[in-house]
Design a protein around this nucleic acid. Structure first.
Lengths: 335, 335
DNA sequence: TTGAAAGCGCTAACAA
DNA sequence: TTGTTAGCGCTTTCAA
């Protein structure tokens, strides 16, 4: 936070009004195209010309403070902690919300306490907060937001969150699907990669849990394999897999699976003969490596649908439920 | 933008003051730990307790409106248009700025006109705007921001931008380095991949330009190869390379290069024997594929240094120059 | 040690 | 058709 700023002269709507020889109200009417506002064509043109000439840019905070409404949507997300799949989806969500007139900002702080995080978001007094797979969007966090006037509190989560519009997408189903597939392929001694990178545990934990659940059902065994996203770590895990005589691995996602797959190749472990490998997220990367990776594909709610839901929540206070996220095994060469 | 919001009751500092039986000024003093403010211990404790009890969250916009200063830093960036390298760096920049007390938000809009984009950023009245390789951060854009009171306007760009604190990192040097390396390896008929994905041309254009410049110098030829990031597109380009009898390809970055490398493998084109392949950005992915990719590694200013510079600009209006971005060829198996 | 009051830039009744 | 005016929630000077 800055402490000793001397303020440069800013162009305000009062300046525009003065220069155009009208009142600030008129400027406001013109610039906002206020419905029932009747401003003469010449006045309107003059105001616009002067505003442009002075380089006037409205002050969003002042506007929303006075108007009691905001067009800000906060999306808590750490850019480095998401794969290509999510980042593309988020990008499209931004575009879709932008088309509806919202200003979307991504917020990447790593405050871990849900309430503290929610307070940070709430300070910005957004009209909506959209979190995806962010474990901090709890019922308490939702309450903080709602009390701060946030009208649309939306989350993608494993289970409905009280007071929050949730689209359910249980990451544990990914783990379960992967194990189910491996068992189908005759594998019973299965490893599950757990990425060591910060920020990823929100995805990794449930995937492991689902894998364990499915393994129990199918009479297979599961071993967690903590691994950093580096060549060396992958090499070490490859060795470990051989020692443990595993015959299948769920690689957390395509990125980690591909890295591990390369390490297998280097050590003469044949995929899928010696060990079957399954990724997740269905990234293009999975088709870049050889053998091509079997993966679990996601189907998130369409960005347009999500944007629509946010808008309905903002305008009307309620929206039809969002579709569940579903997953699909895409079998390729690695299993 | 929402139009028909009925405002829910918000907890304001006035509510806290009333409940605590003090004035709003006192609440402000306590909550901000205002330096020369002398508030009794009991009063202070009571205010804090009441604030907590009511779930009071300050209104950042109102605060900065009144105080005439903001702690907001806007970073224009489209999450899907950056690779792992940049996203990790940005993440660390966020963390570093956060430690200094700033609130960082990423803004992903795709307004293409520099001035229009700058106006969108300026509406938020941030204290700083930090753009990396965003072609919209022109001198005019910088002027819009400065006039809106933005105190630190920072950009990573190919050349210094007037009125903007620039750290220079010329993407064309990457193209030049790649071509230089390929020529060293005896290649003269070189293809340069141009990604067709939106948002990437800001990086791709200069890389191509640099490649062309270097090729001319070394007496090599360069062919631009427009390619989408899909398996099919890569296959088509692989065929095209054979038809054109190219003996080297600069794949734009490691992601595109890896995809193309796989397509070569499928068609029996041996890398690097038949055709040498160079990527860029030095992503882990380059070590996931076989043969491992030769790449160009970046050295961006450290996140701490950048955060420091932003803070100095905000506080003092000037900062020591940021180091130039530099690049380095990392030779591996593919060339 | 605390309170009263002014005002940041803006919008939206209500008057004129 | 336009201007006057009262705040939105907050900080900060000045007085008490």
């Amino acid at each position: 936070m800055s402490t000793e700023q001397s303020n440069p002269p800013q162009v305000t709507s009062a300046d525009v009004a003065r220069a155009a020889g009208v009142s600030r109200a008129t400027v406001s009417f013109v610039l906002n195209e206020t419905p029932g506002a009747r401003v003469g064509e010449t006045t309107r043109a003059r105001v616009l010309a002067v505003a442009k000439e002075l380089g006037y840019v409205p002050h969003a905070a002042a506007r929303s403070l006075r108007a009691g409404r905001s067009d800000l949507v906060v999306v808590p997300v750490s850019v480095s902690a998401i794969g290509r799949l999510f980042s593309e989806w988020i990008d499209e969500v931004e575009t879709a919300l932008g088309r509806l007139g919202y200003t979307v900002v991504l917020h990447g702080d790593r405050t871990s306490d849900p309430v503290a995080a929610a307070q940070v978001w709430a300070q910005l007094r957004p009209v909506a907060v959209v979190a995806v797979n962010d474990s901090r969007m709890t019922a308490e966090a939702g309450q903080v937001l709602t009390r701060a006037g946030v009208r649309a509190v939306v989350a993608g989560a494993a289970a409905p969150v009280a007071g929050v519009t949730t689209f359910v997408g249980d990451q544990s189903e990914i783990g379960a699907a992967a194990i189910g597939h491996l068992v189908e392929r005759g594998r019973t001694r299965i490893g599950v990669v757990m990425p060591a990178e910060r920020g990823l545990s929100a995805f990794a934990r449930p995937r492991l849990t689902g894998a364990q659940r499915a393994a129990e059902e199918h009479g297979a065994s599961v071993t967690a394999l903590p691994m950093r996203y580096t060549d060396d770590a992958a090499a070490a895990i490859a060795l470990l897999c051989r020692e443990l005589e595993l015959d299948g691995v769920f690689g957390y996602n395509d990125e980690y699976a591909a890295l591990l797959g390369a390490a297998f190749g280097d050590r003469g472990v044949a995929v899928p003969r010696d060990i079957a490998l399954v990724g997740a997220d269905d990234l293009v990367l999975g088709q870049v490596v050889r053998p091509r990776l079997t993966s679990i594909r996601y189907h998130l709610p369409s960005p347009e649908l999500l944007a629509e839901a946010v808008d309905r929540l903002v305008q009307e206070g309620s929206a039809p439920p969002l579709p569940r996220v579903w997953f699909e095994v895409v079998p390729r060469q690695s299993s």
